[in-house]
Design a protein around this nucleic acid. Sequence first.
DNA 1: ATAAAGCTTCCCGCCATGGGAAGGTCAAGC
DNA 2: GCTTGACCTTCCCATGGCGGGAAGCTTTAT
Lengths: 130, 130
Amino acid sequence: MNIGEISGKSGLPAKTIRYYEDIGLITPQRSENGYRRFSDTDLHKLTFLGRARALGFSIEDCRTLMAMYEDESRASSDVKLVATEHLNRIDEKIAQLQSMRSTLSHLVSECAGDNRPDCPILNDLACGKS
Amino acid sequence: MNIGEISGKSGLPAKTIRYYEDIGLITPQRSENGYRRFSDTDLHKLTFLGRARALGFSIEDCRTLMAMYEDESRASSDVKLVATEHLNRIDEKIAQLQSMRSTLSHLVSECAGDNRPDCPILNDLACGKS
DNA sequence: ATAAAGCTTCCCGCCATGGGAAGGTCAAGC
DNA sequence: GCTTGACCTTCCCATGGCGGGAAGCTTTAT
């Protein structure tokens, strides 16, 4: 498989696949013409990476998870720890965004949104008062 | 005011304040020795920027909002539009994170987290099956 | 034969800073 | 006066995870 084909099958852009090789997540072989030649194992790894990234895991987490996946002797508790930490980070981000959302939606609802210049959103940003 | 003092008062790191000058959000004067000299107006602007950033507005949004704040004749509907668009982006992000959270917390709850190697989290990443 | 598609490497850009080096300036203490 | 330390300056590099695009190969289709 050349990069275009595996890009289609894995759903990852060619740029991303080259990047993953650069940082050592995959190590495809090379054909005589210098083209990357991907195996089914590579496809499997890229699919794994795509799914992990879709769940928001960082590249370094992905590296760890892939290593665990290939290490038959790791304990499931190790995997669970990585996933739980990531889950906590997600919860923190959600809380942060919801806090923003709460303040902002309050301000938006207070703003008349008409042709007059007076605006509680700007007033709040300027003075901390809504 | 030197940069250290206004940094303390505004709550923004000196690095950030220099960056904001670089990109033209503020234009502090200079003393004879080359030090930046900040006025109360600068402090006011930085406080405005800090609050807007805390609400998640991008730098470009902040630039727009500051311009609107200084333009006495703008309509509040203009401000409301910027804020509403930002609110929508926040809602999208929250939805994305909650979708991740949902999948991930399900996987975590299925994982025994013991010394055995079998792990539904990795199985899902590898095969798309939980 | 030629054009188009696909592949390669390389380098720059994003966003909003943070870290740190090399060097000028100022206030306090001896 | 001299030193020490705190403060300031500019400059360049790094982050994460790629995307865009140039310059130049190879392969494929017409």
